[in-house]
Design a binder for these strands. Structure first.
Length: 306
DNA sequence: AAGGAGGTGATAGTAGAGAG
DNA sequence: CTCTCTACTATCACCTCCTT
């Protein structure tokens, strides 16, 4: 695990990483709770088979904005290098943000996979490492430690290095699941899909209706009994404020005060009816969309699998 | 603390179908 | 044709998650 603090070494390594096809990256940020957060470490891995962190480079860029700029320039905006992060938008906020090219986010990837294929408690990197990749329990206490002090502790460096390992392994596993969850629609087996649907439809209906019913009863019961929480549930309410004004009044005000108010108003069927032929005097924008609906055909009872 | 993506739940509007 | 029912989509305000 090279931990680099020398600017020249760091820059050389960044230059060589710019030749890679894919890199797994994580960052640690100091002063994240202030208005001026700064990148403390950039951890880079180019070998996804690494389990121990031997291949992870920890680049110490604290108070070296020129190194961060160099990294952004050579790697982040470089479309030839695929960059993999967990919750990429967080890291990229401090790493070139808008200009970033060819970025993969393992959190986004995980969100696209339905729960039945990815059965984990939540989508934190820690959880995915433990429950998807079977890493031993991950201690996140260093996550919120002070990344602005030097020297860093051995425990901090270990945490920093392992995060890059987790990103790489989680990424590999998610790609496998992704291939299963997004097959080519053109070659799907319609018979197999229909069979599976019928197989679970009855169970689903039983569970779905009971779940909805339980939720309704719990909500009503907790309200009626003035209970705000049980061991399992929490019942909360919130105020919802929405404001409305008569269109006529708004139009008159805009005209009287010369306010620039230009936005499309939906011409609902009701409005179209009221306007009648006068609608022809308006420049109506028409938007036609095609919506697809899947419905279950009526079937003979004997054919049902239950 | 901050911000972006997406979920939630209420409300409103729509198409399609059946009845008269 | 109109009326009504049902099942959907769209929109809105608010909430939750994820990272350090």
């Amino acid at each position: 695990m090279p931990y680099l603090t020398n600017s020249k070494d760091i820059q050389d390594l960044m230059a060589s990483y710019a030749q890679s096809q894919i890199l797994w990256i994580d960052t640690e940020v100091a002063d994240h709770q202030t208005r001026k957060p700064k990148v403390s470490l950039i951890q880079v891995l180019d070998d996804p088979t690494d389990l121990t962190g031997e291949q992870v480079s920890i680049l110490d860029v604290l108070d070296h904005p020129e190194l961060i700029d160099y990294f952004v320039d050579k790697i982040i905006v470089n479309p030839a290098v695929e960059k993999v992060f967990h919750n990429a938008s967080y890291d990229l906020k401090l790493l070139g943000k808008a200009k970033a090219q060819n970025v993969t986010c393992t959190l986004e990837l995980a969100k696209k996979i339905p729960y039945y294929l990815l059965q984990v408690r939540n989508l934190q990197l820690k959880t995915l490492a433990e429950e998807l990749c079977y890493f031993p329990p991950v201690d996140k206490t260093e996550q919120t430690s002070d990344w602005g002090v030097r020297p860093l502790t051995a425990s901090q460096l270990h945490y920093a290095k392992m995060d890059a390992i987790y990103v790489a392994h989680v990424h590999q596993q998610l790609l496998k699941l992704n291939r299963r969850s997004e097959p080519d629609p053109a070659s799907e087996d319609l018979t197999a899909l229909s069979d599976r649907y019928q197989q679970i439809a009855y169970q689903w209906k039983l569970l779905d209706t009971e779940m909805t019913h339980l939720q309704e009863r719990l909500k009503k019961a907790m309200q009626a009994q003035n209970v705000s929480e049980t061991e399992v549930f929490e019942l909360s309410s919130y105020q919802r404020t929405s404001k409305k004004v008569q269109f006529d009044q708004l139009a008159k005000l805009a005209q009287a005060k010369g306010i620039e108010l230009d936005f499309p108003v939906a011409l609902t069927q009701k409005l179209q009816k009221e306007l009648g032929v006068m609608i022809e005097q308006l420049q109506v924008e028409e938007d036609v969309t095609t919506n697809w609906r899947l419905s279950v055909k009526d079937q003979n009872d004997e054919e049902l699998p239950f």
